[in-house]
Design a protein around this nucleic acid. Structure first.
Length: 656
RNA sequence: GGCGAGAUAGCUCAGUUGGCUAGAGCACACGGUUCAUACCCGUGUUGUCGUGGGUUCGAAUCCCACUUUCGCUACCA
């Protein structure tokens, strides 16, 4: 179909961390990447566009624990949310990678091993400050007033075994690369930050493993350790397209690596411009061509915060304004280097002036005039006047300008160029005054020509708009009854065949909005959001169950509870739910079967000291004898938690 | 503390190597127009270009000091 391939283009976004729902600031990145990917495709490149989620780490482990589900269940939920948001924004990614994908994990383990065997990674000690109650390490710079940043208590210095990546081996090569490739780090001002803060003073070795949590990819030759975020997350750019450490990389990898563009937030520039290139050097792979650290989209009045209920999420914006309006806003308002601002007021202003007035109204009035005068049929009668020349000139220049801006990744400027064309169209209508021509029969051919020119130019504009506002572009072309124009066919001003018919009744592309109404809606949405949060909190803290009838003390005294230490535990083979534990109670050991396999693994049961009902009549469950009961608390979702004494108690201690 | 970026019309921002009588869009006012979503077109107002000093024939643009905002400051994913 398309045999004019210009070459390959591999673009990536950062993978989103699955600690929560991404807000509009995070969503900006995927839309920006999407518009670039789509434009490259429009230009005839074979594009591969990758995005995804980063799903490991302490935070995830903690959050999952808090809610009472497994980390995997937790990240499954969030990853789903992220992906559906990306889909809502109509982004055309080719691959959505998750760091919990099996093939990714496998390669990351192999990468780690290879770097270790090569001597790039060595085992050492990670020294820092340790907060006992919080069970976490901090660097000195992280401390608040020399105390734990989480709980404010005293910390003590401590060591943790860890693997480190030797940086100095490649540092000079990287410095040279950055200096000889000025386009490597964009925008350029960020380059200095990296050079001055890190590279020139000398790099410290990077800690690449952890023993303080489990939710990560295990180091396969040293099980205590999990691979820390950097090697895990950054590798997605190569594992996602089929890199293999042993040399069996896919054709896809050979086609697309090195990446043309890593699009990332400016906050993670360090990892992408220093650690990632060094990793690649160690793997003997070429470096990505460009890393672009984009600025942030901030909210006008103060920082977004969940508790204030003023966080703006993409789906809320979309509900009120529609996908393309949101895409337009984030792409157009985001400056190249400095942070941009978003507010409901600004959003309404842009929609009304640019989308409703300039663009929507232009399409609408053009179609109306065609219908009123020519039954909707477009005919080029060739009655040109001098006044047309400049208009045609602008129409033909616009595609060139847009391409030029996109070459420099100046997406906002590219969109501005397109809208300059639409404005010029409106002006052309005033210059030619079609409603005057319509009154004189002998001017009919001139009128047809004018309207033809309009459709031609709008067609150029709409085709150019495709990468940025795909749905709108299509709607306009459909309403005009014309085809999309290829980027390389924009130099001819005679594209539309005579006799093309526009739609009978123009459909409003963007309705004008009243700020008051929008704000009222927003308030409603946010109220709902806050209420939902409250409800969730309540759910979290309180569970009501059906009351049982009162019992006497004698009834209670019949029950004997003791602390039991689980010394061994295995799954009951025949059963889906049961775990069989050997529980030390005083000097004796009881075998107890419990239906908690969905909540605890056999391994993690071992060593726990739990509350046991010891004088329960033995029973046989799934063919296994059970001599008591482990007591659990259950929440409204059926999540179970073992009862464990608040202080360490010896096995056999009576619970009374 | 160190390194870096910014401070330009009511708002959001452009201003390349010094030549600007300082710009654009939005908002505002007036005029025109009526095909169209009270829309479109035109004209216009508003600025000691953060403060003070210096270099220069000439500085928003270069240099110095100050005020102020922000980013990075190494393991947070």
């Amino acid at each position: 179909m398309c045999n004019k391939k210009k070459g390959n283009y591999y673009i990536t976004t950062a993978i989103a961390y699955t600690s929560g729902k991404p807000h509009i600031g995070n969503t900006y990145e995927i839309v920006l990447a999407d518009s670039i990917a789509r434009f490259k495709r429009q230009q005839g490149y074979q594009v591969f566009f990758q995005t995804g989620t980063d799903e490991h780490g302490q935070k995830i482990e903690d959050k999952a624990k808090e809610i009472g589900i497994t980390p995997k269940e937790y990240v499954d939920q969030i990853a789903k949310k992220v992906q559906s948001l990306w889909d809502l924004m109509n982004t055309s990614y080719d691959k959505f990678i998750r760091t919990t994908d099996e093939d990714h994990q496998k390669q990351v383990q192999k990468i780690f091993k290879k770097l270790y065997q090569q001597g790039d990674i060595y085992k050492g000690y990670y020294e820092g400050m340790y907060c006992k109650p919080c069970e976490s390490f901090f660097t000195i710079s992280q401390l608040v007033d020399g105390k734990c940043p989480d709980c404010g208590r005293e910390v003590e210095s401590a060591k943790e075994e860890a693997y480190f990546f030797k940086m100095d081996r490649y540092a000079q090569r990287l410095i040279d690369h950055i200096q000889t490739n000025p386009e490597f780090i964009q925008p350029e001002s960020r380059k200095n930050e990296m050079m001055n803060n890190f590279l020139l003073p000398g790099l410290q070795d990077l800690c690449v493993s952890r023993t303080s949590f489990q939710w990560g990819i295990p180091v396969d030759f040293d099980n205590k350790h999990v691979i820390y975020v950097w090697i895990d997350a950054l590798s997605n750019y190569i594992t996602g397209i089929g890199y293999d450490v042993d040399g069996n990389s896919t054709e896809q990898f050979k086609t697309f690596w090195p990446a043309d563009l890593h699009l990332i937030g400016k906050d993670i520039l360090r990892f992408h411009t220093i650690y990632w290139p060094i990793m690649l050097m160690a793997l003997d792979l070429p470096l990505p061509k460009q890393i672009f650290g984009h600025p942030w989209l901030l909210q006008g009045d103060g920082k977004m915060s969940k508790s204030k209920g003023n966080v703006i999420y993409a789906d809320e914006l979309v509900e009120i304004f529609g996908v393309d309006a949101v895409r337009y806003f984030v792409l157009h308002e985001m400056p190249f280097e400095n942070d941009g601002v978003i507010s409901w007021e600004l959003m309404v202003e842009r929609v009304n002036s640019d989308l409703a007035n300039t663009l929507g109204n232009l399409v609408n009035r053009t179609i109306s005039m065609l219908n009123q005068n020519f039954g909707g049929v477009i005919m080029d009668k060739g009655v040109k006047e001098d006044i047309d020349e400049d208009f045609i000139q602008v129409s033909l220049e616009t595609p060139k300008k847009v391409i030029e801006k996109m070459e420099k990744l100046r997406v906002a400027d590219a969109i501005t160029e397109i809208f300059i064309l639409f404005k010029r169209c409106n002006k052309y209508i005033d210059e030619t005054m079609p409603w005057v021509l319509a009154k004189e029969k002998e001017k009919s051919d001139r009128l047809a020509t004018v309207l033809y020119h309009l459709v031609e130019s709008i067609g150029i504009g709409a085709s150019l708009l495709k990468s940025f506002m795909p749905q709108t572009s299509e709607k306009i072309l459909n309403q005009l009854g014309i085809c999309e124009r290829d980027l390389d066919k924009m130099d001819v001003y005679k594209w539309i065949p005579d006799g093309t018919k526009v739609i009978d009744k123009p459909e409003i592309l963007f309705a004008r909005l009243e700020l008051n109404k929008v704000l009222a809606k927003v308030e409603e949405q946010q109220k709902k959001e806050v209420e939902m949060m409250k409800k969730e909190e309540e759910k979290k803290t309180v569970v009501d169950i059906e009351a049982k009838s009162e019992i006497s003390y004698e009834d209670f005294a019949k029950l004997q509870f003791q602390v039991g230490e689980i010394i061994a535990c295995e799954e009951v083979k025949k059963s889906k739910k049961l775990l069989c534990s050997q529980v030390r109670i005083g000097s004796q050991v009881k075998q107890i079967v419990s239906g908690i396999k969905a909540h605890y693994t056999a391994e993690e049961m071992v060593g726990k000291k739990v509350m046991v009902l010891v004088n329960l009549k033995p029973a046989t469950l799934a063919g296994v004898v059970s001599e008591g009961m482990l007591l659990c608390a259950e929440d409204e979702n059926g999540q179970l938690g073992l009862m464990i004494p608040e202080k360490d108690m010896p096995a056999g201690a009576e619970i009374c």
